[in-house]
Design a protein around this nucleic acid. Sequence first.
DNA 1: CAAGGACGAAAAATCGATTTATCGATTGGA
DNA 2: TCCAATCGATAAATCGATTTTTCGTCCTTG
Lengths: 358, 358
Amino acid sequence: MAQQEARQRRPSIHDVASHAGVSAATVSKVLAGVTTVKPENAQRVFDAVERLGYRVDPLASDMRRAKRRIIGAIMPEFESEFFGSMVTELEGLAEQRGYTLVAASSRESETREKEILARMHDWRVAGVVLAPVRNEHGPAAAFMKAHGMTGVLIDRVLSDDAFDTVSADSAAASAEVARMLIGNGHSHILVIGLAEQAATVRARLEGFRSQALTLNPSVRIDVITSEVSVEPLRSSLRDYFGRGERPTAVYSLLLKGTLVALSEFRRRGWHCPDDIALVGFDDAEWMQVTWPAIAAVVQPVRQIASEAMNLLFRRVEGDAGPPTARLEPCQVLMRESVGSPGSGPHSGGGDRQQPPLS
Amino acid sequence: MAQQEARQRRPSIHDVASHAGVSAATVSKVLAGVTTVKPENAQRVFDAVERLGYRVDPLASDMRRAKRRIIGAIMPEFESEFFGSMVTELEGLAEQRGYTLVAASSRESETREKEILARMHDWRVAGVVLAPVRNEHGPAAAFMKAHGMTGVLIDRVLSDDAFDTVSADSAAASAEVARMLIGNGHSHILVIGLAEQAATVRARLEGFRSQALTLNPSVRIDVITSEVSVEPLRSSLRDYFGRGERPTAVYSLLLKGTLVALSEFRRRGWHCPDDIALVGFDDAEWMQVTWPAIAAVVQPVRQIASEAMNLLFRRVEGDAGPPTARLEPCQVLMRESVGSPGSGPHSGGGDRQQPPLS
DNA sequence: CAAGGACGAAAAATCGATTTATCGATTGGA
DNA sequence: TCCAATCGATAAATCGATTTTTCGTCCTTG
């Protein structure tokens, strides 16, 4: 290959055409793999492409089609492992199909979410993977509907009458957490969450509550939620403990809640799992190295991303069937923060030593 | 505003032109703010734009210019808080200037990094913010040089003869860590890192070592690094401790190393800061809520992003001055994992209780 | 031997905006 | 009064590809 004019205008399809002694149309056809071109001419085109280091301009290439080979991805934030790896996965899947992924952060704002969507509409993206800030009924989904955009909703959604949805099966995972906590003898459990993300948080709460009540009808389940941000949640939690409430376990419905709970435990000098057990929805890399390791529900990021892209491209290719609502199963990782199975709550000072070295 | 044909072809500038009874050129000029248009006609254009809900197609608009209003961002990964918030910041700054940010993950692979760069070159991006996998001398930077791309290198870089660089002042921060550890009486310190990221890791190591030796010439500093991934680092660390080595403090030069150190401490049943102190380069949200809270060097993400974008746009606008190398100051957060100031190493069982409630 | 296909490739239209060249009308100066 | 300068706006070229239409050969067949 040749580098030629290092910093000059890049060669266009016409440059290739004239070097190969054919028309631009022929070059386009050769590169598109059309077979009605004389092998001799095709070879000359390939040679010219090689010599000039020619590459198709995706922008110009997309001009004529109604749907550009661009997929938009809108996430509430980029700072967390969950959305970070979601973007990584989506990027790879889009790439595999020859599409470019353009990711944007709505920064937990529905207003911004809609603005970004409008901008992506300006770009005539072929489709959008939207992880809405609140749920499937926000202004962004309405915008997509009104403008006939194709898209898939993920994460904080359950089902929709216009778009395919893909999310973690929060309810089933929460039920499993309930089985485990009740099985360990907990009878007073605090659940914390953000009500704003109504769709999934409610599913998690109900999945947990119904299973817990089935296994132990007399279990006491307290719930603390806050509307918008986590700070009110923190102060509610502080008040709650301050009133002398003393649940034996806490189930946090979201990652930031797990952090808040941990910091409040620290503040009061409580240790997991001896003083109080903790399980969080959403796993993070650090949770397995802290002491104690934090039990967590692991969301199936790869499966969600892969299923979302499959559904999206089916729609992009014209499928007009009724929207589907997928739930991908989670994994519940039992770690030290919930104690060993069978060890009841407040079962003594516990063993603060670690397991012996292997 | 009108929604009109919800799912039809979007109106083009010609639709606006015919509705306003003027030519497309006039519409373009009105929207570009050219003043040589009769106010009456301008008003008709604005009315038509409003009525049709017209918005410029950024793709078509970019066709004619050599540099499109797109900025590329290449990060080694999206999963960490650092690069996640870096992308968020860069996105906002690009947006402010009317540019679209296209972010891609090189997944810690230099091969992929170069492929992504080539694809961005295909898109004729105006500029690139590259956080190289290894350092400023990789194939990606060479590609940018060879093709006359404009760009800025950030994070794992020190300085370059072709591009502006912006990174955290690792050396100064590491010196501060050294001052703090030596000041606390530590005389046997282990430093761990990944040698692959040569540029910055070496700076951090040297910044630490020289300051430490200045303050206490007889201090013992052990260094464990691994070439590529963290797993070899883990086993080296395990061997090291297995041989009976017992430093009183560990300074990890990277986030993943902090996690490895923590998990090895757990494995051996050691607690911070009583058994061993720990400081990590790179802060994370969870570090302040674990017990103990982990001391860390906080990188100035906003400053790096902002400075990088300033420099980049200066270049995009044609500035051809010599490349600059910026170092942004870090903040060192002293948390419980290093004990209280003055408390020497191995100073007894320590107080495992928390500070009193406020 | 002339008309009808088949084939391969070039010419031209297209996508949607921007920019340059052109043109008509009005105004100004000589 | 006539030509020139000015103003405002339109026509046309342009960006780089794709797709449709047209065109010229060569081959086949009646």
